[in-house]
Each structure stands twice: as C-alpha cells, then as structure tokens.
C-alpha cells in the first residue's frame, strides 16, 4: 500500500463518517455539522486528484456557505427539544435504505463499465487558466445562463423576503 492509497482510505473514512453522522444523529444541528465534515472529506479528494481549485470551491461554497445556510435555517425554525429533531421515520427508513442501495448499485455498475482515459497532468500545470478558458470560451453560454438563473433566484428571494409593494 503506497502513500496515495493511505490518503484515499483516510479521506474516505472521514467522508463516510460524516455521511453516517448526518443520518444517525438525533439532533439536527449535529447532523448538519457532520455534513460539514463530509464536505471537507470530499474537498480532500479533490486535493488528492490535484484539482486544487475545485477543492477550494468545495470548501468555500459547500462547507463555508451552504452548510451555514442550512444551520441558520434550522436554528431559526427550531422550537422543540433539539435532541428529538432528526428521528428517522419507522417505516420509510427501510424504503430509503433500499433506494439508496439501488442507486449505489447503478453508480457502481456505471463506474465499472466506463473507460477513464484522462491522465494526470504535471503538478505545476496552470489548471485555473485551463478552467477559465473552458468556462469563458467553449461553454460561455451555459455559464452565463447559470449566472442569470442565480441572479433571478436572488431577486426572487429578496422579493419574497421583503414583500413586493402592491401596485
């Protein structure tokens, strides 16, 4: 077992530990915080694959912003005993497990069947520049449409929160 495998196993353990925590903690704030742990583990995978930019985006957007949003929302609406807020449904938990297994099977099958032709670049390659050329070159329309979509969502959120004036 070389160093790379060891790092992979440790990161996988952290990610799975976080993911198991999300479903098994009965306190929903604890569940949200272990979601952060899981996000950080995934960011570690990106670093291991030398996709530093993606890893940092993962930390900033998922671990730093989205999870804060989730925790904020939870704290604002919670009015019960916090230790009883994330209890799994007595029947649906089995259905959920079944569906999760099914999806894991499909993804595993897809991974087994596909051919990965990509190769590792040199560690000093200017990956941010390459990414920028793709996003602002070949895929610029998709990129701009996503940006407009986000802008519309932000404007909509502000109107919903403030309440539009009646004409």
């Amino acid at each position: 077992m070389n160093m790379n495998d060891l790092v992979f196993i440790v990161l996988g353990f952290i990610t799975l530990l976080g993911a198991v925590g999300v479903v098994s903690f009965t306190n929903i704030v604890h569940a949200a915080l272990s979601l952060v742990l899981s996000f950080l583990g995934v960011a570690g995978f990106y670093f291991q694959m030398q996709a530093e930019f993606l890893g940092l985006v993962q930390i900033m957007v998922y671990a730093g912003a989205i999870s804060v949003l989730i925790i904020f929302a939870i704290m604002l609406v919670m009015d019960r005993d916090p230790n009883q807020t994330n209890i799994s449904h007595p029947v649906n938990r089995w259905w959920g497990g079944l569906i999760a297994l099914l999806f894991a099977g499909i993804i595993g099958f897809a991974i087994r069947e596909s051919r990965f032709t990509g190769q590792a670049g040199s560690p000093d390659a200017d990956r941010v520049g390459q990414l920028a050329e793709l996003v602002l070159g070949n895929y610029v329309i998709a990129f701009e449409i996503a940006a407009i979509l986000l802008l519309v969502a932000v404007v909509g959120a502000i109107i919903l929160a403030k309440g539009a004036k009646e004409q």
């Binding site: 530093e52 930019f53 940092l56 930390i59 900033m60 730093g64 804060v68 200017d126």
Partner: peptide, 25 residues
C-alpha cells in the same frame, strides 16, 4: 507555493464562520 494560494486564503477564511457558529450554538 500553491498555484491557487490567494483563493486558498479566502476559502479557508470562510470556514471560520462555522467555528463561531459552533461556539455560539
């Protein structure tokens, strides 16, 4: 000498919010 050093600084800085939130909660 990361090739995304500046971004590393900003992105890790955003994690401090989680730590403060944990302390407050």
């Amino acid at each position: 000498d990361l090739n995304v050093g500046l971004f590393f600084f900003i992105s890790l800085g955003s994690l401090t919010t989680i730590a403060l939130l944990m302390g407050g909660w």
